[in-house]
């Protein structure tokens, strides 16, 4: 494995760029179009110890019936669950385009043996998962065992076969700084990730704009080096439309038109969808909305 360890990130520079992105002002048509795009990119997520089949079924229903007053809206991109819920989700979504995504590899810590991780991945794919969200071994990363991290991703990718796309969670909140995030992104991309993803949602900070920008730049460099596109998924902490639109502007200005598509960009979020719906309705009706009219979970 040849790693390009040279690429450095200046923290303040990244944050300056982000601050300029967040100053973009989205109005009228651009805003509505953006909001719809966001909805189509959401991985509706439930990852709790107390998840039940009923809870997952409800979420799947929501994924395909976002709001009855706005029938022209797109569906969300996927529903993301624990491996033991994949069957349930898969059944609930079998007649829809919404993908079933499953976390795997001893989510969220990633601290388990490779055998267990492989087994878990195989099971999830066998049960119908079309997307696997794995976590990298941060402990190994911090001990400098980059080859281990790389090989693990490559093996999981192999076990996804051609049935499932692999999203690799870097858990950026545990990586310490942007240079590490950049390096982890490159390891994941070169090991075969179809997507790189910021966070499990269990660590703070989860996704942030600057972290996402660092990862997008890694994706871009990879594209220009190899011609291959890799997807991006910020997850955790993106709970309102304004922030989600800023992410979208960042994608537009960093990777451009090709990535403005649910096949290449996702939001991992649980409460974002409702806020986007409220904003869309507000754009349509001119009236500010209340949570009471939007179903939770």
């Amino acid at each position: 494995m040849i790693l390009d360890l040279k690429t450095k990130v200046d923290k303040l520079g990244i944050e300056d760029r982000v601050s300029r992105i967040t100053k973009r002002s989205l109005k009228s048509e651009a805003k509505l179009q953006g909001l719809k795009m966001i909805l189509s990119m959401i991985d509706l997520t439930t990852l709790e110890g107390m998840d039940t089949n009923k809870r997952v079924e409800q979420l799947c229903y929501k994924a395909t019936h976002l709001h009855q007053e706005l029938p022209e809206l797109p569906n969300v991109a996927a529903v993301c669950v624990y491996p033991n819920m994949v069957k349930t989700a898969s059944n609930s979504l079998k007649d829809s385009e919404v993908k079933v995504a499953s976390v795997a590899t001893a989510f969220p810590s990633g601290n388990s043996s490779l055998e267990v991780k492989i087994q878990e991945t195989k099971e999830a794919v066998f049960n119908g998962a079309e997307e696997i969200d794995m976590v990298i071994s941060r402990g190994k990363f911090h001990s400098g065992e980059y080859n281990y991290v790389f090989d693990e991703i490559a093996i999981i990718k192999e076990n996804c076969g051609d049935k499932a796309r692999l999203k690799v969670i870097l858990e950026t909140g545990e990586l310490g700084d942007y240079d590490h995030i950049r390096l982890a992104s490159e390891i994941a991309i070169k090991a075969g990730a179809d997507f790189i993803k910021t966070s499990t949602g269990k660590i703070k900070p989860a996704a942030t704009l600057p972290i996402t920008l660092v990862m997008l730049e890694a994706i871009k460099d990879h594209y220009y080096n190899t011609g291959k596109m890799v997807g991006m998924k910020p997850a955790g902490g993106i709970s309102n439309s304004k922030l989600a639109l800023q992410y979208l502007v960042m994608v537009k200005e960093t990777l451009g038109n090709l990535w403005l598509d649910k096949h290449w960009f996702r939001f991992g979020a649980s409460s974002l969808a409702n806020d986007v719906l409220m904003q869309i309705l507000k754009q349509k009706t001119g009236v500010y909305q209340s949570n009471n009219y939007f179903s939770k979970g």
Partner: peptide, 20 residues
């Protein structure tokens, strides 16, 4: 950088509306 790789396009898909 291989010359076969297409340059990315940044405009035309989702453009900002005016915000005066």
């Amino acid at each position: 950088m291989s010359s076969k790789i297409k340059s990315l396009k940044y405009n035309g898909k989702w453009d900002f509306s005016t915000s005066i």
